[in-house]
Nucleic acid binder design. Structure first.
Lengths: 186, 186
DNA sequence: GCCTAAAAGCTAATGACATTAGCCAGTGGT
DNA sequence: ACCACTGGCTAATGTCATTAGCTTTTAGGC
């Protein structure tokens, strides 16, 4: 009996490919085990349960997202950086719509590292706006809300008329950038 | 054998209460049937399957949201209307965080009516900005993305530090309103 | 090389779920 | 009273997640 040489990392990889191909609803331990060439209970040697598998997948997704956005933002600042960040985020979601839908938003220990990295990248992109720290945290949250909201709606076909969604995104970028540049009345 | 006098409407009501009390993961036909005092397969006399139940629930949620927002926006225009809309939307989500999480975003026949009503309300709220129709559609989408994005993140505790989220939302409102008021470079 | 312990597989079992098929009882209309 | 429809029911099926405990493989120590 040859050992399948499985690992938690390999399980996550298989799960992500499964979701990419068949959508988030196809994610079952049974399906992952079948693809891994082991019996379903064998997966418990590598992941605690289905919830942990989801969290580990989310960590991987967030790492990729942070990596992509970090690269896109490098060397840019202010409006250009925000544009690059928002564009890259959306591109990732559209390109990987199924895995993006599987992304768990609630904070988990497994996603803390990548989540922080993403926040740091966003804070860096916002640096040129000269906000003090608490204001920058607000901005990070709003940026995330806007981009993520758009991404989930787009990937769930909630906009229905697919034409001109690029134009819609330009308006969203405009709103974010303009909002950052315009002082609020005290 | 007394008839339980069930209906699709009653089933939806029971399901919503279940979700409100125990969260979206608790929604099973078995649990709904138990609360209704019937056997699980009896529910198929009233709803096609679990997916249809979710869609019908979503329709109800959207109707309530549209009703609430419609009332809040009445008699207000421009910035005040947008503020009322965004505030009411968020309040609904926070107040009903579990059912909001159960809301299906993908368009379904069951949710088309309420979805359209919501779009109409948003278009009305935007009327005072004097946009032509296609620009108004973009604005509706962005408004929805921003608000919904914030709502799902907040209700999933993705902001983690719960303090000052109100302040964050003020910034989001500011971004939306400012973005609507500032012409985009052609 | 041999032995032992740990790791990583396995099968069987359990309970929960969604759904289908077909039967039964109640109700309303003729 | 009879019949058809409606809305319940039970039984069955298949899938899933998970646990318990057994077996095989591998790695490390002597």
């Amino acid at each position: 009996m040859a050992r399948a040489a499985l690992s938690a990392d390999a399980v996550v990889g298989i799960a992500l490919r499964l979701v990419d191909e068949q959508g988030p609803a196809a994610l079952t331990l049974a399906a992952v085990a079948s693809r891994a060439g082991v019996a379903t209970p064998s997966l418990y040697k590598h992941v605690r349960n289905l919830a942990e598998l989801r969290a580990l997948m989310s960590a991987r997704i967030l790492e990729e997202l942070a990596e992509r956005i970090g690269r896109a933002v490098l060397g840019r600042s202010a409006d250009e950086a925000i544009r690059a960040l928002m564009t890259t985020w959306r591109d990732y979601a559209v390109e990987h719509r199924h895995r993006y839908a599987a992304l768990v938003q609630a904070p988990e220990p497994e996603t803390a590292g990548a989540g922080e990295k993403l926040v740091d990248i966003m804070l860096a992109a916002l640096r040129a706006y000269g906000m003090e720290e608490s204001e920058a945290i607000h901005a990070v949250r709003c940026l995330r809300a806007a981009v993520h909201g758009f991404a989930v709606l787009e990937t769930e076909n909630a906009f229905q008329l697919p034409d001109q969604v690029d134009e819609t995104y330009e308006l969203l970028i405009h709103m974010v950038v303009t909002g950052l540049r315009t002082p609020r009345r005290a």
